[in-house]
Amino acid sequence: DTINITLPDGKTLTLTVTPEFTVKELAEEIARRLGLSPEDIKDTHNGKTLDPSLTLAEYGITPGSTITLEIK
């Protein structure tokens, strides 16, 4: 299953994830792909900052969802 990550420059990154991924694991994968530190990444969905300890499923993030990435 894939989700879309909207980057600060407007580009989109597509990642393969499972509903059990935590937001922290997602940030780590994004950081790895972009050459950043996971601590520099802030993920938001529907205007809410995502708690790193919760899973994508707990936020109702499903395949095809879009998450907005902010760099701290």
Rank of each mutant, 00 (worst) to 15 (best):
N46C: 14
L13V: 07
I61E: 01
R33P: 00
I30P: 00
A31D: 01
G35A: 05
T55I: 02
L13Y: 09
K11A: 10
L69A: 05
T66N: 09
I71H: 06
E25Q: 14
L15W: 03
G47N: 07
I71C: 14
T44W: 14
L54P: 03
K11T: 12
L7M: 11
E39H: 15
A57N: 06
D51E: 06
T18W: 13
L36I: 14
A27D: 04
T66H: 07
H45L: 14
H45D: 08
K24M: 09
D40S: 13
N46Y: 10
I5C: 04
T55L: 04
T16L: 10
I71F: 13
V17P: 01
D43R: 13
L26A: 03
G64Y: 02
E29A: 12
L34Y: 06
L56T: 01
P38L: 13
P63G: 08
L36N: 04
L36M: 11
A27G: 10
D1E: 08
T12I: 10
P38R: 08
L7G: 03
L69M: 07
A27N: 15
G35W: 04
G35P: 01
E70M: 08
T66A: 04
T22R: 03
F21H: 06
T12R: 09
T22F: 01
T2I: 10
T66W: 09
L54H: 08
D1F: 15
T62P: 06
H45R: 11
G64S: 03
L36S: 06
I67M: 05
D43F: 15
T49G: 07
T14W: 06
Y59C: 13
T68A: 13
K48N: 11
E20V: 08
T22L: 04
G60I: 02
V23W: 15
L15C: 04
A27L: 15
A27R: 14
P8H: 08
P19K: 09
H45Y: 14
D40K: 10
T16G: 07
I30D: 00
I41A: 03
T68E: 11
R33W: 15
K42W: 15
E58R: 02
G35L: 05
T18Y: 09
G10M: 03
D51A: 04
E39P: 14
N4A: 08
G64E: 03
T16P: 10
L13M: 11
T6V: 15
L54K: 15
S37H: 13
T14N: 06
T49H: 12
T12G: 04
T62D: 05
I41K: 02
L7D: 02
G47A: 04
T49C: 13
K48M: 14
E70F: 07
A57S: 08
G64W: 02
D40E: 12
G47D: 07
T2S: 10
G35T: 03
A27F: 15
T49F: 13
L56S: 00
T62M: 12
E29H: 09
T49E: 11
V17S: 01
L7Q: 02
L56Y: 01
F21Y: 13
N46E: 08
L36F: 10
D1Q: 11
D43Y: 15
L56Q: 00
P52F: 13
E70V: 13
T22S: 04
L34K: 00
E39R: 13
L15I: 13
E58W: 06
E70S: 07
T44A: 13
A31W: 10
S37M: 10
T68H: 14
I30N: 00
G60L: 03
A27H: 15
A31I: 05
T18E: 04
I5Y: 01
L54V: 09
P63Y: 04
E28G: 05
G10K: 04
K42Y: 15
L50K: 03
I30Q: 00
V17K: 00
P8D: 06
V17L: 07
T12S: 09
R32S: 07
T6E: 13
K48S: 10
T2Q: 10
G35S: 06
E58L: 03
T18M: 05
N4L: 09
T16R: 12
L54I: 08
L56A: 01
N46D: 10
L7N: 01
Y59K: 02
T18S: 08
S65Y: 05
T62E: 10
P38Y: 14
D9L: 04
L69E: 00
T14G: 03
A57P: 02
A57Q: 10
I41Q: 02
T12M: 11
I30F: 04
T22A: 01
I71A: 05
N4M: 09
V23Q: 00
D40W: 14
R33L: 12
I30R: 00
P38D: 04
E39Q: 14
D40H: 12
Y59F: 09
G60T: 02
K24S: 06
K42M: 15
K72S: 12
L34G: 01
E70I: 13
L36G: 06
V23S: 01
N46G: 09
E20R: 08
A31Y: 11
T62Y: 13
T68C: 14
L50F: 10
T55Q: 03
S53W: 06
G64L: 02
P8L: 10
D40R: 11
G35M: 06
T66K: 05
D1N: 13
L50I: 11
E29K: 05
T2V: 10
P8M: 09
N4G: 05
T12C: 08
T49A: 10
G35I: 02
I5D: 02
L7C: 08
E58A: 08
E29T: 09
E29P: 00
A27V: 15
D51I: 05
P8E: 07
D40F: 14
N46M: 10
E28H: 08
G60Q: 03
P52L: 13
I5Q: 03
L15H: 00
L36Y: 08
G47Y: 05
T2N: 07
L7E: 01
R32W: 09
D40Q: 12
L15K: 00
N46F: 15
I61D: 00
T18N: 08
T55G: 02
T44I: 13
V17D: 00
A57D: 05
T6M: 14
T68I: 14
T2R: 08
T62V: 12
V17F: 12
T66M: 05
A27Y: 15
T66D: 04
I71K: 05
I67D: 00
E20Q: 12
R33K: 07
L15E: 00
P19R: 07
E28Q: 10
L13P: 00
T16E: 09
P52Q: 14
I30L: 11
T2H: 10
L54D: 03
P19I: 06
E20C: 08
D9K: 05
P63K: 03
P8I: 08
E28C: 11
D43L: 15
K48P: 06
G47H: 07
K42C: 15
I67C: 09
T55K: 07
G47P: 03
R33Y: 13
T44Q: 11
D9Q: 05
T14V: 13
P63D: 10
L15M: 08
Y59Q: 14
L26Q: 00
P19N: 05
D1G: 14
P38G: 06
I41Y: 07
P8Y: 07
I67N: 01
L54R: 14
P63T: 08
E25N: 09
N46V: 07
L36E: 03
L54C: 11
L36A: 06
I61P: 01
T16Q: 12
T62I: 12
E20K: 09
L7V: 04
E28P: 00
A57K: 12
L13R: 01
L13E: 02
R32C: 09
G10P: 01
P52D: 11
E58V: 03
E25L: 06
L34C: 07
N4Q: 08
T55M: 04
K72I: 14
T44G: 11
E25W: 06
L50H: 04
K72A: 13
L7F: 13
I30Y: 02
H45S: 11
G60Y: 02
T6P: 02
F21G: 04
K72F: 14
S37R: 13
V23Y: 06
E20I: 08
I71P: 06
K72E: 12
S37A: 11
E70W: 08
S37W: 10
I3S: 02
E58M: 05
L69I: 15
Y59T: 07
Y59A: 15
L34F: 08
I61V: 07
S53D: 09
I61R: 00
L34T: 10
T22G: 03
I3M: 03
T12E: 04
N4C: 07
L69S: 02
F21P: 00
K24C: 08
K11L: 12
A57C: 07
T44K: 14
E28F: 10
L50W: 14
T68F: 14
T44Y: 12
S37N: 13
I3P: 02
I61K: 01
T62A: 08
H45N: 09
P19G: 03
F21A: 07
L13H: 04
P19D: 06
K24I: 04
L13N: 00
P52W: 14
G47Q: 05
G64H: 03
L26T: 01
L56I: 07
P38M: 12
G47R: 04
P52T: 13
V23D: 00
T62R: 05
E70P: 07
T44D: 07
T55W: 02
T16Y: 12
S37Q: 12
K72H: 13
G64D: 04
E58F: 09
P52Y: 14
T44R: 11
A57G: 08
L7T: 07
K42D: 08
T66P: 01
K72T: 13
T62L: 13
S37F: 10
G35R: 05
I41S: 02
L50Y: 11
R32K: 09
I71D: 04
T14I: 11
E29S: 06
T18C: 05
R33Q: 09
L26F: 09
E20Y: 11
T66G: 02
D40T: 12
T12K: 08
G10R: 03
T66V: 08
K24Q: 10
V23P: 00
G60A: 03
T6Q: 14
G35D: 06
L54F: 07
E70Y: 07
Y59P: 00
T68Y: 14
I41M: 07
R33N: 05
I3G: 01
E39Y: 09
P38V: 15
K42G: 13
S37C: 14
I30T: 02
S65P: 00
R32H: 07
L26D: 00
